[in-house]
Nucleic acid binder design. Sequence first.
DNA 1: CAGAATAGTTGTGAACTGCAATTATTGCTG
DNA 2: CAGCAATAATTGCAGTTCACAACTATTCTG
Lengths: 163, 163
Amino acid sequence: MSKSAGAGAQREAARQDAAIRLGELENHLGYFVRRLQHWIFRDANAGLATIDLDVILYSILETIAANPGAAQIAVAGALGIERARMVALLDDLQQAGLIVRERSEQDRRAHALGLTPRGRVILKKANALVAAHEKRVARRLGVDNYRRALAALAQFETDETRG
Amino acid sequence: MSKSAGAGAQREAARQDAAIRLGELENHLGYFVRRLQHWIFRDANAGLATIDLDVILYSILETIAANPGAAQIAVAGALGIERARMVALLDDLQQAGLIVRERSEQDRRAHALGLTPRGRVILKKANALVAAHEKRVARRLGVDNYRRALAALAQFETDETRG
DNA sequence: CAGAATAGTTGTGAACTGCAATTATTGCTG
DNA sequence: CAGCAATAATTGCAGTTCACAACTATTCTG
């Protein structure tokens, strides 16, 4: 769609044919967030597919690396993943030999999560792929917009993150 | 909505203990976009539920209103909805008496979409609810961050957008 | 100690995704 | 101008995700 509403209607040249107006959606952050997220996930997943990961599995690995010994529910909370769904995701990572689940000493209900050596290697590769993806996002969005967006959105606190 | 008010104190205490680090995710726009989108959809849907809509149906209504006579595929493209999925969504809206599907005069393969009078009434209510939601987003994110985020993300062009 | 709360797990129904196939219609091209 | 490719809408399907509810084992609290 092109932006043909009153405020900022430039960059029109691209879309000649079925130019669709957005109406009120122009003023709704959720609309743009959804569009951007859609693109980001496709692009990031395409990159990570080369090492048999996706953004969800990657973000789990990275969170475990940053919080060795964390329980499943803590990782799930940080990433907005349902704890029930986390089980199968961790099964995958464990079966791939990237993480270990050990019973926690302090709380024998909980699992202490950790990376295997192989997990660390894969995570390093993943971070390189994701960094390349991030550059594509920045180029696509414009470097200034990218920085502004990251700064603004990082301020957001979900219900889970606010203490 | 999200957290039941009942079990407050212990939960928040436990949550503070489990301060989880994000590692590299701190630098990844996709992480924050996903978190924000999750919250936005929950909040917006909760508002729209009072008139039996959700954000998807609302955005379809708004797009039709801004583009009377548009074909299904045009609306689907603007909103990032698969055209196959659009069928059932429009079925719902039609059954609720909010839209009409007429065969297009110019192209008899296509449907010309339009709002019914009832559709216009509901859309007006929806826009009020969504505006209230938008204010909640702005307050949650901080008004300055909200404006910056909206300005930055509105620049993004999807693959469909660019010719 | 009894009862409530919590971590992990399993299961379920509904919804969404991406894809393939079908029909009716249109547009292109040789 | 006839045939063939492309397109709009629709149907159907397999795999995934989602939000819940229920269950076990363990821990915390009064």
